[in-house]
């Protein structure tokens, strides 16, 4: 569906803008999670086919004609995997933030400049 594709791209751009423009470390991770949601919506909407049901072959679907009645199952499987990994990566990033805060007592990314150039 074209609307969800546009929505996904807009969320991706908002997330990237947040990652680039924010100075607070937790805000940067929030931007990352928004971009993550946007990418998932893009992938799922590519697999959508008009007037079809979910890829679950119960009594609602005529099994002999299942290929003409269900949406694409592969993007669903990919996104399912990506969401779980997204959680793990977000948790790892947040634990890095907590460790950094213990060292420098600051959440601003401007305070973490070891190099001049």
């Amino acid at each position: 569906m074209i609307f969800t594709l546009i929505l996904g791209f807009v969320l991706l751009l908002i997330g990237i803008y947040g990652m680039l423009s924010q100075r607070n470390l937790i805000k940067i991770i929030i931007g990352f999670s928004i971009a993550d949601t946007g990418i998932h919506i893009i992938i799922v909407s590519i697999g959508y086919l008009r007037n079809r049901t979910a890829p679950i072959l119960n009594s609602a679907v005529d099994i002999s004609k299942a290929v003409q009645q269900v949406v694409d199952p592969i993007p669903s499987a990919l996104v399912l995997t990506a969401i779980v990994i997204g959680l793990a990566v977000t948790a790892l990033m947040l634990s890095f933030v907590v460790e950094l805060y213990k060292k420098r007592k600051s959440l601003s990314i401007d305070d973490y400049q070891e190099l001049k150039w």
Partner: peptide, 22 residues
């Protein structure tokens, strides 16, 4: 559906007896 996805849907019925294709 693409060729690959059609194969997965058919295989889910004929080879694996699984209702949920995902």
């Amino acid at each position: 559906l693409s060729e690959l996805a059609s194969n997965y849907v058919r295989g889910s019925v004929n080879e694996l007896n699984t209702q949920n294709v995902v």
